[in-house]
Amino acid sequence: MISCTEFIPAYSELFKFLEQKGGKAAVVSFWEHLSDSFLNNLRNIATQKGLAGCFEYWSHTLSEEAADFKMMLDEENQIFTIEMRSCPSKGRLLERKDIKPYHVYCEHCDILYRRVLEPLGFEYNIDLSNCDKASCKLVVRRK
């Protein structure tokens, strides 16, 4: 068994492995599959509760992942943001000097969650320009 605390390096390795097999297209296909099949919990709660559901979903996951972040839900203006100051996944990969993270590791967060939220009527934007520092910013708006 791989512990859940050891999963992220295995996840990054999966992206590298898929790219070796079929280029980046193979990685993106997997991300799309994972989004469609695995993220039903986010899909369901965002369908039922809108941006408040997003707040609830990420409150749970980011707490369990011991992330360093600030999350805001502006219900009046229908904006949900996550300022990720230290992403636990990318941060752990960067800490490991013996492994090289998948070169566009953070792009999975763009594809996985965009694919859930945009069909539900949300505008999804993620700024990954600081992901080499394990930081990013997510903004989700009701269209």
Partner: peptide
């Protein structure tokens, strides 16, 4: 003012996200 904020530091929680087992399961099946 209708704004909800949650701000946490890494040290506020233990790193233990068991749903990662599920993601690995999907990876193997895929």
């Amino acid at each position: 003012n209708n704004i909800r904020i949650l701000e946490l530091n890494s040290s506020d929680n233990e790193y233990l996200h068991k749903d990662f087992h599920g993601a690995l399961c999907y990876g193997i099946k895929y």
